[in-house]
Write a protein that binds this DNA or RNA. Sequence first.
DNA 1: GATACCAACTTGGTATCCCAAAATGGTATC
DNA 2: GATACCATTTTGGGATACCAAGTTGGTATC
Lengths: 221, 221
Amino acid sequence: MSQMQIVENALREMILGLEVGPGERLTERWIENRFGASRTPVRAALLRLETEGLICRDGRGWTVSPINLAELEQIAVYREAVEVAAVRLTSALTDRSAIEIIEAMLDSCDAATPREEWHRVGMDFHIELARLSGNEFLFRAVRDAMTRLSRARWLEVRDEAALGRAWSEHHAVLAAVRAGDADAAAARLSAHIVGSRDRLVTSLHNDRRGLRARGFAVVAV
Amino acid sequence: MSQMQIVENALREMILGLEVGPGERLTERWIENRFGASRTPVRAALLRLETEGLICRDGRGWTVSPINLAELEQIAVYREAVEVAAVRLTSALTDRSAIEIIEAMLDSCDAATPREEWHRVGMDFHIELARLSGNEFLFRAVRDAMTRLSRARWLEVRDEAALGRAWSEHHAVLAAVRAGDADAAAARLSAHIVGSRDRLVTSLHNDRRGLRARGFAVVAV
DNA sequence: GATACCAACTTGGTATCCCAAAATGGTATC
DNA sequence: GATACCATTTTGGGATACCAAGTTGGTATC
């Protein structure tokens, strides 16, 4: 694997894993030393991560994108549009064998499963469902939206009750898709996304003080 | 303006203007000489254009993205999802003054207007309508989709009747938006996008031989 | 004439060097 | 003690040198 990809992936993991806090400054030289690569691949990786929205230019330098409440709400609207379109296509599929795989993925999480895994599976549910639509652009849009939401969703995952609600909503969507009922699937997914947004915004709002204390930049509306 | 942006913009114009044909190979050294920049900004520009889908990796090198029929159809589905979501938001706006600006933009095109301008205005209609929604992600999605469609739409623009149909459909959408009728606006926009896709696919199919003769790579389904 | 093989060239990937501008930190002045 | 000013350092943008892998073209062999 090329140096650029190594740096890109490692840096993405650091950002998504909150090892570098939202709002933190990044210098090309620091990354260079941190990963033992030269500036050429480092800069290529930064350009990539910028298009993913994980970092942003800060004047002449780079900053880990802050968690932006207004942006999170806009993303919810955006992902509702693309996910609903995708799930309608998926509901029309004749071959529904892949649905079982997704359901099994959901069921693989139990009380013993670490939070990190719940978090990943919760995102992959949406991504894989969109992938099934067969539309590459809807798929990418959902994947990118989930990536952008990823850091904020860490907070939601700490709420046991919210997780249970989300999981049962996931199952409800899958049931409608399996039945080929596009309208029901769309309605349930839509409700899930709106509910998910509300839970996220609420817990973010409650935790803002704590986040700032940890040095995380959280931008309000 | 930085060298990178100069190279990026100039190269984008060349690609969108079909000055370099779809499927054509690009070498970093050629671009370097063509624009008098060194490889650092050239590589940065290439990485950017790759994320826009205008160029793609071809093994170890770079290629101007071919015009891909299957991809165009997928983009139509994608943009229908995001544009309809955007126009619903736009229809809910109380301040509709910006609608007049868009309408004036459409009306600025007449028989004396060069085809290039018709093409640009036709794209900007959709982009600006999405921008009015106020949702940055829907806006970017529409803009990116139109960029990806841009080269193929050059072909449609040559058809006088198709242009007239498109323009009257644009006006119909605007009328519904101005009336605040989100459902009608959504339905009309949706029909326009589907019709636009059909016209595009048809004319592309008819012209494929001519395109190949000009050295353009056109990938079928 | 076909083919196997090799040398020269081309190309993208990487490292490194230089530069201008901006940030930093210390110091002199009030 | 606050502040204006200047030297130093740091930083990102750009240019260039080098390398390994892949391509090409020619040549020797059969």
